[in-house]
Computed example of a mutant assay.
Amino acid sequence: MRLILASNSPRRRQLLTDLGLAYEIRLREVAEDFPPQLRRGEVAEYLARHKAAAYRPGLAEDELLLTADTIVCLDDDVLNKPADAAEARQMLRRLQGRAHQVYTGVCLLPGDGRAPVSFVDETTVYFGPLSAAQIDFYVENYQPFDKAGAYGAQDWLGLVGIERLEGSYFNVMGLPTHRVWAELVRMEYFAVSD
Rank of each mutant, 00 (worst) to 15 (best):
S7P: 03
S9E: 08
R11P: 09
R12L: 06
Q14F: 13
Q14A: 14
Q14T: 13
L16Y: 11
T17E: 14
T17W: 15
L19R: 10
G20T: 06
E24T: 11
R26V: 03
L27W: 03
E29M: 01
V30D: 02
A31Y: 02
A31P: 07
D33E: 07
D33M: 01
D33K: 02
D33W: 01
D33H: 00
P35W: 04
P35S: 01
P36I: 01
R39P: 04
R39D: 05
R40W: 08
G41W: 13
E42P: 11
V43M: 09
A44L: 07
E45R: 15
E45V: 09
Y46C: 11
L47M: 05
R49W: 09
H50G: 04
K51V: 03
K51L: 05
A53P: 06
A54I: 02
A54Q: 12
A54V: 00
Y55F: 15
Y55V: 12
A60C: 05
A60G: 03
D62I: 02
E63H: 11
E63I: 02
T67A: 12
A68P: 09
I71S: 11
L74P: 06
L74V: 09
L74K: 11
D75C: 03
V78I: 15
P82L: 00
A83F: 02
A86P: 06
A86D: 14
E87W: 00
A88E: 01
R89H: 11
M91A: 09
M91V: 00
R93G: 09
R94E: 00
Q96P: 10
R98Y: 07
A99W: 05
H100K: 01
Y103A: 03
Y103Q: 06
V106I: 09
C107W: 08
L109R: 01
G113K: 06
G113Y: 08
G113H: 04
G113I: 00
R114K: 11
A115F: 04
A115I: 00
F119V: 08
F119M: 00
V120P: 10
V120G: 13
T123W: 12
V125W: 15
P129I: 02
L130Y: 05
A133V: 04
A133I: 00
